[in-house]
């Protein structure tokens, strides 16, 4: 019963987050002082020189349509939601005309997803492992050193770490490429090597900025758990340190870490967008950046809607891992 409640509650939150996010995304451009159609027309007029009035009107009508600005506000809202959730269609990109926005996004998404997923796993596993040991022996030299490292690392913003890594390892010592170029035939070893090689620094930037936080939080968990009655009881049963850590402390320390991961994933997503821009990495972040720079309204709406959906979905999936570990929710 608790499990059903948990899942239903979580899905309700998911739907609400999406509804709120999409509504804001729908209304914000409509409150902007400039009309995107006029702005676009002006831009096209500059590029193509003279246009007569009938051409301008035809262009205005078609732009109005692609921007979804036809009909009453309610109709526009309905059409917008249909585009996002049913048709998955945001029209053509204006800066890379006539490539559909959806095509650009579906090319970029695997990069962002792959980068974020691998960096998150590495940071989470490494941070939890180090934090667990640091919390187990908090007064050892290694434990202190690890905590010091974590405290130094975790307030540094993404872009600083990304810039430092990029300057040090692509410029001063040109070990890794400065910008991303992927080479190799599809499904070949060369391709894999090229991807790993090009993704190493961006991934490291995310790992370094996030794993300090994991160390700090799991260390606090471990130290608290050491004093728990059930750990004390297990120790008095004569269990070895390794089994105490592996079977009693670790699983219990990881539970809140899953919740934290769900809370952090949005922040990490933002971080990876910045990282992508710095390393010229062909993901969603770079796409959003280009859309902003070039005033590509369709592309911007498409990338942002997708970001909202992606982050909300990832958060929910992580939350669904929780009952797999915690029997108190599984068998309520």
């Amino acid at each position: 019963m608790r499990l059903v409640n948990f899942i239903a509650g979580r899905i309700a939150v998911y739907v609400m987050v999406l509804a709120v996010g999409m509504t804001i995304l729908f209304f914000v451009p409509r409150f902007a002082p400039t009309d995107p159609v006029d702005a676009m027309l002006a831009k096209i007029a500059v590029q193509s020189g003279y246009m007569d009035a009938s051409q301008v009107d035809a262009l205005r009508a078609s732009l109005s349509d692609t921007f979804g600005l036809d009909g009453s506000l309610l109709e526009q809202y309905g059409a917008f939601l249909r585009r996002v959730f049913v048709e998955f269609d945001f029209g053509p990109s204006l800066s890379m005309y006539p490539t559909p926005v959806m095509e650009l996004i579906s090319n970029a998404l695997p990069w962002t997803f792959g980068l974020l997923f691998s960096a998150t796993i590495i940071a989470w596993v490494l941070g939890n492992f180090v934090g667990l040991l640091a919390g187990w022996k908090p007064n050892s030299n290694a434990g202190r050193a690890m905590e010091g490292l974590a405290i130094c690392l975790y307030p540094i913003p993404y872009y600083i770490v990304a810039l430092i890594l990029s300057v040090l390892f692509s410029y001063v010592w040109a070990i890794f490429p400065l910008t991303t170029t992927i080479r190799g035939a599809p499904w070949s070893w060369d391709l894999v090597r090229s991807i790993v090689w090009n993704s190493f620094l961006p991934a490291m930037a995310i790992v370094i900025t996030t794993f300090g936080w994991w160390i700090i939080s799991v260390k606090a968990q471990t130290q608290a758990l050491k004093e728990e009655e059930f750990v004390r009881y297990a120790r008095l049963k004569g269990l070895s340190d390794a089994r105490l850590l592996g079977r009693y402390i670790l699983p219990n320390a990881l539970l809140p870490q899953i919740t934290f991961l769900a809370l952090q994933i949005g922040l990490m997503f933002n971080g990876s967008l910045i990282t992508e821009i710095i390393f010229d990495y062909p993901g969603l972040g770079l796409l959003i950046y280009k859309a902003v720079l070039q005033g590509d309204y369709n592309l911007l709406m498409g990338t942002i809607s997708l970001s909202i959906v992606a982050v909300a979905t990832a958060t929910m999936i992580i939350d669904f891992l929780y009952p797999l570990i915690d029997p108190r929710i599984r068998h309520g």
């Binding site: 009655e229 059930f230 297990a234 009693y248 219990n252 539970l255």
Partner: peptide, 21 residues
Amino acid sequence: PQGSMSVLNPLMKVHKQLIDG
């Protein structure tokens, strides 16, 4: 021990805790 709520590992079934010492 005195069997308070938190004296057994909440994530482990009883049969494992019966033999793990």
